[in-house]
């Protein structure tokens, strides 16, 4: 199987085919990093692009992300063995009072594929929990997600809390979600904004160590 064929399997969301293809690549002697960057990440970049252009939609993004994860899973033991070098650590979560996680999960999967060490705090995450994670995990960046206009205010609370604790300069804060805009991100003092998961990967890339 050729690299392009495996990329197509990921784009189509064929998890079993992707896993099989990755095993073949390994057997053929391709390096782990080359498989990740040249096939898995490259395929997800295409998926992100097609999503931004309105050629595919959320279910197609999800099955592609699942296929990519199936490929990553095959590589995991080798990654652990070799001690993978991450781009850095990212903490993500959906803010307090909000249980919507589809966008946040997609961002997590895409970041993971792109080479970030991702800590996912889940949904309905209190500002104090983000603060604790920044203290303990020392991430390069945190990503806050909200789908409701009633919950997006919590993003500002997180930023205020980081400021109050003197941690704001140590971590970049990115925000996203349906009601959130670039303007809102600027107003609350966030470092960045992404309208979708594909863009989030590009924005987070600025903060890679």
């Amino acid at each position: 199987m050729r690299a392009n064929e495996i990329k197509d399997l990921i784009i189509k969301g064929d998890a079993a085919g992707t896993a099989w293809g990755v095993e073949e690549m390994l057997a053929a002697g391709l390096a782990v990093d080359d498989i990740i960057q040249g096939i898995l990440v490259s395929a997800m970049n295409v998926v992100g692009e097609r999503f931004r252009e309105g050629q595919i939609f959320v279910p197609e993004m999800l099955i592609a992300a699942r296929a990519m994860k199936a490929g990553l899973k095959i590589l995991e033991p080798l990654i652990l063995q070799a001690g993978r070098k991450y781009l850095g650590k990212v903490v993500i979560g959906t803010v307090k009072g909000d249980l919507h996680d589809i966008g946040k999960n997609l961002v997590g999967t895409m970041l993971q594929g792109a080479g970030w060490d991702v800590v996912d705090l889940g949904v309905d995450v209190a500002p104090e929990k983000f603060l604790k994670a920044v203290k303990e995990q020392k991430p390069a960046a945190i990503g806050l997600s909200a789908l409701l206009s009633t919950t997006m205010g919590s993003m500002k609370t997180v930023l205020g809390l980081l400021e109050q604790e003197g941690l704001r300069s140590q971590v970049k804060v990115l925000v996203g979600g349906a009601p959130v805009s670039e303007k809102y991100a600027t107003e609350i003092g966030a470092d960045g904004y992404a309208p979708d998961a594909g863009t989030a990967v590009h924005v987070f890339a600025r903060y890679a160590s």
């Binding site: 279910p59 099955i63 589809i102």
Partner: peptide, 10 residues
């Protein structure tokens, strides 16, 4: 659940 239904369609 949202994630589940989005995968259930396939």
């Amino acid at each position: 659940g949202m994630n589940e239904i989005m995968l259930d369609v396939y």
